[in-house]
């Protein structure tokens, strides 16, 4: 029987792969098909041009607007009467958008042929993300109101619905009133709450500030999901409050141990707290990374198990309707 040492096996593997690589038909028009399937990317579209676009809505035509990389804050938008007074900010990848605080959370449709299909709820006023909350998929109908992150529509105006592209991200807003639509569109901008992507293990956990941890200044949650390209992309974020931090702090005071191997997370939640430094002037930061499917929390102080009390500190209704960990198996 022949002996196969490592170099010989490697040689045979190289020869075999070379041989079989020659079998593939490389004349297929993969590039042309990809270009045809790609959403047209006409550069960046500025949501701040919403006033122009709303004017375009009257004639229901697509209105390209000026290209600007980073949209300025929307403080200069004129006050509009009859609009909701309570708003919240929703985050997705690089961007954020403000929506009325009483809107719910739902599913952005995907394009299947000529149809828009949604696998999950799309009723009521909602902010949609490209997720599935049900195995039952149906043609997406309904006039809104809604905001769709990662919209399947091309930029432009179609009746009460307008799609813009900011920082490469496409957002559709549909309302039954132009003023509300303008207000929402004008808030679409590059977000700075959370990094748009993170690595497999989340961000670095930093050092361990033992002394001088003063009052909490801010407490934020950034949720990431494993994307097709293997990166972890921001799918949800929220600014939490001091009360939420105190709840979190109590919950992790005596945590359960965890020795789980969490090497293949599907979703990560990064919690970041900023604190006064009682001995200095620069704020101190603490970071926790929650591996949701695994139920483990990583911190500079060590790893521990996730409990319901911990989840309750940061998982509001939006997170529970967005993250597959909470949505659970589809049915």
């Amino acid at each position: 029987m022949a002996e196969y040492d490592d170099p010989e096996v490697e040689r045979l593997v190289r020869a075999s792969l070379d041989t079989h690589a020659g079998e593939v038909d490389t004349t297929v028009p993969a590039a042309a098909r990809a270009r045809a399937a790609a959403r047209p990317h006409r550069g960046r579209w500025m949501a701040a041009g919403a006033a122009v676009a709303v004017a375009g809505a009257i004639s229901a035509v697509t209105v390209p607007v000026l290209v600007v990389d980073h949209q300025e804050p929307t403080d200069d938008v004129q006050p509009l009467t009859g609009l909701p007074t309570q708003w919240r900010t929703e985050y997705w990848h690089d961007i954020s958008v403000e929506v009325p605080a009483d809107w719910g959370w739902g599913v952005t449709p995907t394009r299947v042929g000529d149809q828009l299909v949604r696998c999950g709820d799309g009723s009521g006023a909602y902010v949609g993300r490209p997720i599935a909350t049900s195995d039952l998929c149906a043609e997406a109908t309904g006039a809104g109101p809604y905001v769709w992150f990662d919209s399947p529509l091309e930029p432009g105006v179609d009746g009460d619905q307008e799609t813009v592209e900011v920082d490469g991200e496409r957002v559709t807003v549909a309302t039954d009133g132009a003023a509300l639509r303008e207000r929402i569109l004008s808030s679409v901008k590059e977000q700075h709450l959370c990094p748009a992507a993170t690595g497999e293990r989340g961000p670095g956990l930093g050092g361990t500030p033992i002394d001088g941890l003063g009052d909490v200044q801010s407490f934020e949650m950034c949720a990431y999901a494993l994307a097709e390209d293997g990166t972890y992309q921001l799918v949800y974020g929220a600014e939490l409050g001091e009360r939420d931090y105190l709840r979190w702090s109590r919950a992790i005071n005596d945590p359960p141990q965890s020795d789980l191997d969490c090497s293949s997370a599907q979703e990560l939640v990064v919690l970041k707290g900023s604190f006064d430094d009682t001995f200095g002037t620069e704020p101190l930061a603490l970071t926790w990374v929650v591996d949701l499917p695994c139920g483990q929390v990583r911190s500079a102080y060590g790893d521990f198990g996730l409990t319901d009390e911990m989840e309750a500190a940061w998982a509001g209704e939006g997170a529970r309707k967005t993250l597959s960990y909470f949505i659970g198996p589809l049915g």
Binding site: H20, A21, V24, D25, V28, A30, A31, A34, A37
Partner: peptide
């Protein structure tokens, strides 16, 4: 890229799908 995808997937069809999908993105 098609050759790589073929070697990884073992199938012409899967290789085309994978490459086309990736190139689209």
């Amino acid at each position: 890229l098609l050759r790589f995808a073929y070697l990884v997937t073992g199938s012409q069809h899967a290789a085309e799908d994978a490459v086309q999908s990736a190139l689209t993105r």
